[in-house]
Design a binder for these strands. Structure first.
Lengths: 189, 189
DNA sequence: ATCTATTGTGATTAAGCACTCACTATACTC
DNA sequence: GAGTATAGTGAGTGCTTAATCACAATAGAT
């Protein structure tokens, strides 16, 4: 037992789930320890502070998702299909790991403070893709940052409502509708 | 000094601003008292607990906004114009009182727990309007709850980014773009 | 002017929190 | 098997927090 990565992974997983469920501040180190089946002190063998835990956990997961979207964006598909693929990716993530999705949503509203400016985030990937499509004349004109935000909203807002039980249908079955809506926003019809 | 409504209003305003700025849990009763220029104990003359303060404040403001949208929805305008008016209302609210808007956004992500099911909320108003438009054949088919969520996302997500400095332009100037995007989502072209 | 109900005060309290530390358990090295 | 570095423990610490309460100030009623 020299390597504590198993424990660390357990901490990460439990922390993510609890954060997604009740928010960062409402989740205590005691909760995490209990959930992971370890002593409270053990958390501090892996992280200097709760704050560091939150930051590192968030950054690693966020980056992971960002680069997964980047892959789609730089594929050989055509533009419409890329948008569709990205949204399908969102829906799949949400369907398969709601806790992860919800945790990542915590960026919003400052539960988790600012994302570093140079980071590859979903919005940034989307924005670049939109700007590119505008240059090619496929997407209608307008501030690409704003359009990226709107497209993200089309996908994220239903997800939020889904989490809170206002949309009961399986989220994955929304994929087609969300995609068409996103196309509608971008004038990609 | 029989009537403490002046004090109560001061508490409400300061609380809302602090909640919007740093979140509910991060705002202490001490912060609120300091901001309102009163003693901590005074808060408890007006509210049984911090939790009650949060709940009552949120519900009253949320309802206020909901009925303001309801007014627009039941006006004599045509459908497209109603959607435009609602979005204009959002943009105006955001431009004029960002703290209020941001506080209302806290509903999302469970910072403020569930809204009572029978409450008139922006989504509900929007959903009914959409269902109505679908019956009249003006809006394309699809789950009206989902469509309402998407339309809301188009407006709210940019607002969130605006708060966190990712969109620097004056939010009001987005009105036209947001409206067109919402029309796009609903197939109202 | 006196009485009374309401509003405001702030030191105090009890609970909960993140974090520490002296200690134990484990597993790799030689 | 002795030595050592790492991982895990959990009672304990000091601080912050929401909430209380005995008291003071105020304003309307009589």
């Amino acid at each position: 037992m020299r390597d504590g990565t198993a424990t660390r992974n357990k901490i990460n997983r439990v922390a993510m789930e609890l954060f997604a469920e009740k928010g960062v501040t409402e989740t205590t180190t005691k909760d995490m320890a209990a959930g992971a089946g370890i002593a409270e002190g053990t958390i501090y063998r892996h992280y200097k502070s709760k704050d560091e835990l939150v930051r590192k956990l968030f950054l690693s997961l966020y980056e992971e998702q960002g680069s997964s979207l980047l892959e789609i964006a730089s594929s050989e598909e055509d533009l419409k299909q890329k948008i569709a693929d990205m949204i399908a990716r969102f829906c799949q993530l949400f369907a398969e790991d709601k806790a992860l999705f919800t945790f990542l949503l915590l960026t919003q509203h400052g539960q988790l403070k600012q994302v570093p400016d140079d980071m590859i985030t979903p919005v940034v990937v989307l924005r670049d893709l939109i700007a590119q499509g505008q240059n090619a004349g496929a997407i209608k004109q307008g501030d690409p940052d704003l359009m990226a935000a709107m497209v993200l909203g089309v996908v994220v807002q239903p997800a939020v409502f889904h989490v809170y039980g206002r949309l009961t249908q399986d989220y994955k079955s929304f994929t087609q509708d969300l995609t068409e809506a996103a196309w509608g926003v971008l004038g990609l019809n």
